[in-house]
Amino acid sequence: MYSEKVMDHFMNPRNVGEMENPDAIGEVGNPTCGDLMKMYLRIEDNIIKDIKFQTFGCGAAIATSSMMTELAMGKTLDEALELTRDDVADSLDGLPPVKMHCSNLSADALKAAIEDYRKKHQ
């Protein structure tokens, strides 16, 4: 049911773990539904210098988190805000339709983290 890319990112997730003293944190989802995603950002000059994630969820939830960290790394905040859940799914060679909404939350988590950063640095 999952593409090879999804399985690769799920089995060997990139940039996984907690970040110490991050500049921003974004958390979305709800453990009741089975998906909770947390994104940590290190930001310098409006550029994402480092990004890490923690996810409670299914294979798709972990793979989409991992893929998003690769897509967002090195981007400016404005560029990162343009990343969508479709970008993540496309980069993973697609997701099963049932997983598109519940488990593809990483764009929302990244957005929440950037909003957190901007709120702190207004």
Partner: peptide, 14 residues
């Protein structure tokens, strides 16, 4: 606690 079954199953399958 703290983990999700599908992720566990897929890892077991691998």
């Amino acid at each position: 606690s703290y983990i999700e079954g599908e992720a566990l199953l897929l890892n077991l399958d691998m």
